[in-house]
Simulated scan of single mutants.
Amino acid sequence: MIVRILGEGQLDVPDSALDRLNELDAAVEAAVESSDEAAFATALTALLEGVREVGAAHPADALDESDMILPPADATIDEVRAMLGDDGLIPG
């Protein structure tokens, strides 16, 4: 799957990483729901680092649509709240 981190670009992430990324996403969602700024910052950092760890750079000249779009590292809790879907940031 292709994951875009806003402001950074796209990464090719293997489907096998989805379970772990969903765990990290759940922590972001819980922090947003409780309006816990400190937990939110930690959880968002962990999620983005997790995606960067398992992902490989998608070719910059490719015009492929992203399967998922994640907020930038400096996103606010309100910005992420607006991006959250029923399944969090990462569906599944």
Rank of each mutant, 00 (worst) to 15 (best):
G88P: 00
I5Y: 09
T76K: 06
I90P: 07
N22D: 06
D74S: 13
G50E: 08
G55S: 01
R52L: 04
P71E: 02
P72K: 10
D87W: 14
E33G: 12
V51W: 12
H58V: 02
T76P: 07
S16Q: 08
R52D: 02
A39P: 04
D36I: 00
V13W: 12
A73N: 04
E29P: 00
A30Y: 06
D61K: 15
E49V: 07
T76I: 01
D78Y: 12
I90R: 07
T45N: 10
A30W: 07
F40P: 07
A82N: 09
A46C: 13
L63G: 11
E53C: 01
I69P: 07
L63K: 14
G55Y: 02
S66D: 15
A43E: 06
A38L: 14
N22I: 00
A27R: 10
A75Y: 02
D12Q: 14
A82S: 12
V32P: 03
N22T: 11
L18C: 07
D67R: 02
L48C: 09
N22R: 15
D36P: 04
D74W: 13
M1L: 06
L89H: 05
A75Q: 02
E79R: 02
P14K: 04
L63W: 15
F40R: 05
P71N: 07
D78C: 00
D64W: 15
E29H: 07
E65D: 14
I5L: 12
D15Y: 13
S35V: 12
P59N: 01
R20Q: 15
M1F: 08
A60T: 15
L44W: 09
R52P: 00
